[in-house]
Design a protein around this nucleic acid. Structure first.
Lengths: 140, 140
DNA sequence: CTACTTGCAAAAGGTTTGCAACCGG
DNA sequence: CCGGTTGCAAACCTTTTGCAAGTAG
């Protein structure tokens, strides 16, 4: 059993674990997102370009939207807060923070332990904290 | 000189101070945003509804977009980070943070001194920190 | 007067939707 | 086979743009 088969099986199991049928399209998208050992930021647009480039079989834009949403709901992706009328996603789902460069509109990760909070407010009654994100806007 | 005249003059001076001609439309929008002593969150859509309701003379949507952008550039408004393909603004321009309820999609202010950071990263070379925002996502 | 603003409608850009064809289990 | 998925195009929604008409100084 090759490394590639393991990889593919891992993906299939991951999808099954969330009740997502491991279709050809979802597996290909998952490969593009989770294969390498480094995490990254993307938009549907950049993901679409990456997938529908070169040799790959094509995947329709609607399916990419569907899948990214499904993966986000399943907790495989994190949506990044930046406003500006386009959704950014992060394959790094661990708690961490971001620099946002307003000039270049670029996001950079800030390692979790680079920021320390010494005081955090109590959430409103009946609600609990799901996550906490710091965005530091930077400029020249 | 009535209280209302003072209010209007204040607005006019504020606008002039940023090189914005105090037009009828800008003054009316400013009244809607800065008149009361409490701050609030809004989108262009809600602001538009508020203004073009009832007795007021109407203001075109394009002008509302223009004006909100101008006010944001002038520092009278702050854009809020939430992604979700619609821009949220805050009339509270002081440094502060937000709870974001994913269920109701509602934003609540967190007072500045309710959050304390004991460690903040150094920005990338050649850049400086413009601002720092914490968003705490909450859920049931 | 003149330059800045406004308003309208059209265009743009990103995302969602409806539905027939497809396919995984 | 059945119900979940895909692909396509059209629809949608928010935001931007071009340009003629209006107005503040």
């Amino acid at each position: 059993m090759t490394k590639f088969m393991n990889q593919k099986n891992e993906i299939i199991n991951k999808l099954r674990g969330s009740g997502l049928r491991p279709t050809k399209q979802r597996i290909l998208i998952a490969k593009n997102l989770f294969d390498n050992n480094k995490t990254f930021h993307f938009t549907v647009e950049t993901l679409n370009r990456k997938i529908n480039k070169s040799g790959n079989e094509k995947i329709s834009l609607a399916t990419i939207y569907n899948t990214v949403e499904a993966f986000t709901n399943a907790g495989y992706l994190k949506e990044i807060l930046t406003s500006k009328n386009k959704s950014y996603y992060d394959t790094n789902i661990k708690s961490h923070h971001h620099f946002y460069d307003e000039g270049s509109k670029e996001l950079t990760d800030i390692n979790y332990n680079q920021i320390k909070l010494s005081k955090v407010p109590i959430p409103p009654k009946g609600k609990k904290i799901k996550n906490l994100e710091v965005v530091i806007r930077i400029q020249k």
